Simulated scan of single mutants.
Amino acid sequence: MSHLPQEPEFEQAYKELVSTLEDSTLFEKYPEYRTALNVVSIPERIIQFRVVWEDDAGNLQVNRGYRVQNSALGPYKGGLRFHPTVNLSILKFLGFEQIFKNALTGLSMGGGKGGADFDPKGKSDNEIRKFCDAFMTRLCQHIGAETDVPAGDIGVGGREVGYMFGTYRRLRNKWEGVLTGKGLTWGGSLIRPEATGYGLVYYVEEMMKHVGKGSFAGKRVAISGSGNVAQYAALKCIELGATVVSMSDSRGCLIAEGDAHFTPEHIEEIATVKLARKPLTEFSGKSAFKYIEGARPWVHVGHVDVALPCATQNEVSEEEAQALVDNGTLFVAEGSNSEFYYLSSCLATQSYMQAMNAK
């Protein structure tokens, strides 16, 4: 099926999935699945709207808001992302992958993704509240507990979800489970913030057991990102006895030098820095680490046993994946979104199998 050439992120996700399925001979055994894939590759509905809000100086600001919906199983389910890079191609790719992630749960959930090209960085709490109110004022017409249940993503944490839930409740006059990621005192779920990061680490632990490589104890772990997923992945790795040697943000990465490594206290301070929408250069403990402007950690960390990309899509290039393999990395698993990591996972697995065969 041909897709729009101006949507590179979606085109990449679609082609990678199709090539994987074709290599598995799935379509030969079940040709009807190819038809099904062609159907779900076109979103059931794309909603695009204007978001007008007022900044602290009294000036009107305008952003683009989106929601992509695709379902055969139940209500749409997927995150909202507030970031200046948000566009329709990215949201289509994320919504497309969300279909399959949700189907694997065995629950009746379709796929959805949305957000806006709004940049929360540098904005006051009041400006973020006003934007969330304006965004939900338009989005609330298209969501509901039995229709579409958004969650958080990049730039959308508990504060933003809270602002949006308040607007939804006021406009729709309903208290219902229309947003996940709410506070515990008003309908949120226990350990929901930790779930993705913890789940990623548990998954890798099962990978280790499967190939007879023990557990996280004593292993060096490189992590990209410093948001919710990266923070809790780091904390769980540390709890399991691993040494975490990197974190990053959109401006650069922090690399542990010598015997330095991230501690739970470091992660707690990084969480505070991120909540204030500040860069990692504001992290006071960075003196024990090397900050590399404009870089991701993979080629700078030296030997690591595990690499966990937890920032955004396409966090590991082919060259970076090869550098990880060359430095002895055996396990790569993503906490963010993109099938591109299949490449780095395959490279790492290939390296491991070659080492095993050599023995």
Results as ranks from 00 to 15, higher is better:
109 M>W: 13
96 F>R: 06
102 N>W: 02
96 F>I: 06
122 G>N: 02
105 T>L: 14
123 K>Y: 04
121 K>S: 07
122 G>E: 04
101 K>A: 12
107 L>F: 15
120 P>F: 00
107 L>C: 12
103 A>G: 02
121 K>E: 12
122 G>Q: 07
97 E>Y: 07
109 M>H: 11
98 Q>T: 13
95 G>M: 10
121 K>Y: 09
105 T>N: 12
112 G>L: 01
99 I>C: 02
118 F>N: 11
103 A>W: 13
108 S>V: 04
112 G>W: 01
108 S>A: 15
124 S>F: 10
115 G>Q: 02
119 D>Q: 04
112 G>R: 00
108 S>N: 14
116 A>I: 06
117 D>F: 03
105 T>Q: 09
99 I>H: 00
104 L>A: 14
97 E>R: 05
104 L>N: 03
122 G>R: 06
124 S>E: 11
112 G>A: 15
95 G>V: 03
95 G>I: 08
105 T>R: 06
112 G>T: 01
96 F>K: 08
109 M>A: 14
108 S>P: 03
121 K>P: 03
100 F>M: 09
119 D>E: 04
121 K>L: 09
104 L>C: 12
99 I>L: 00
113 K>I: 04
98 Q>R: 14
118 F>V: 05
112 G>Y: 01
120 P>H: 01
96 F>T: 08
112 G>N: 02
102 N>T: 06
101 K>R: 11
99 I>N: 15
115 G>M: 02
109 M>T: 03
110 G>A: 07
108 S>R: 14
106 G>S: 11
99 I>W: 00
121 K>T: 12
107 L>I: 15
114 G>Q: 08
111 G>Q: 12
107 L>Q: 12
108 S>E: 13
122 G>V: 06
123 K>A: 05
103 A>R: 07
102 N>G: 02
110 G>R: 08
102 N>V: 01
115 G>N: 01
107 L>W: 07
103 A>K: 08
110 G>E: 08
116 A>D: 07
112 G>C: 11
115 G>S: 02
